[in-house]
């Protein structure tokens, strides 16, 4: 099955337009479009891309969608996905650049984002629920979850947490029991 670049681009435009309130919203959006609606990727793959997206330089959301695009259609796919993702935000910024003042004072705009911010909490909770079923599979992964959660709450940099998790994975695979899994 070869995925059409045009279709990939358009879906990424949609994702880019809905990407409100921080990069992590990319996960529910990707899962919904690439996994649930189209079966192009599995949920696990998307979670992996998000994890890897945090350890390469740059901004997480575009990194994640480029990794997904690469998986689907190689370099061209990654480029297409990136172009799609930045399309709507780019236009929005160019349009708004001209009337900053009015917008900054707009109480209505603040009210809308007040509600959107609450909705985002729900989106993330739903994502965590889904990710939970594929990632917390035994006691070790549960402990990893709890410790990573606490580290994150206490302000340890995500990059460091990811690096620690990678090191844990490598060490575990070197141990006789872990390698046998």
């Amino acid at each position: 099955m070869k995925i059409k670049l045009g279709e990939l681009f358009l879906i990424c435009v949609k994702i880019g337009a809905l990407l409100l309130g921080g990069g992590y919203v990319i996960v529910p959006l990707l899962v919904n479009e690439f996994s649930k609606k189209r079966n192009w990727l599995t949920r696990e793959e998307i979670i992996d891309f998000y994890a890897i997206g945090q350890c390469i330089p740059g901004i997480i959301a575009p990194n994640t969608i480029m990794l997904a695009g690469y998986k689907l259609r190689g370099k061209t796919g990654a480029f297409c996905a990136l172009l799609g993702l930045i399309f709507a935000p780019f236009l929005a910024i160019l349009t708004l650049a001209s009337f900053i003042g009015i917008l900054l004072q707009s109480i209505i705009m603040n009210d809308i984002f007040w509600g959107v911010n609450v909705a985002i909490i729900i989106l993330i909770i739903l994502t965590v629920k889904e990710v939970w079923s594929v990632s917390i599979v035994d006691k070790i992964t549960f402990l990893l979850f709890v410790s990573a959660f606490l580290m994150c709450i206490f302000g340890i940099s995500p990059a460091l947490i990811i690096v620690l998790a990678i090191m844990f994975g490598i060490v575990r695979s070197k141990m006789p029991k872990g390698g046998a899994k």
Binding site: E44, I121, W132, V134, S135, T141, A148, P158, I162, A165
Partner: peptide, 30 residues
């Protein structure tokens, strides 16, 4: 096996970081 094991450890860490974002947003906006 190394990559499989790395992913095994990365997934819960990623889930935890997402949960932490929800947690932080809850305290910030609610």
């Amino acid at each position: 096996p190394i990559l499989t094991s790395v992913m095994y450890a990365l997934r819960p860490a990623t889930a935890a970081m997402l949960a932490a974002v929800a947690f932080r947003l809850f305290f910030e906006s609610v």
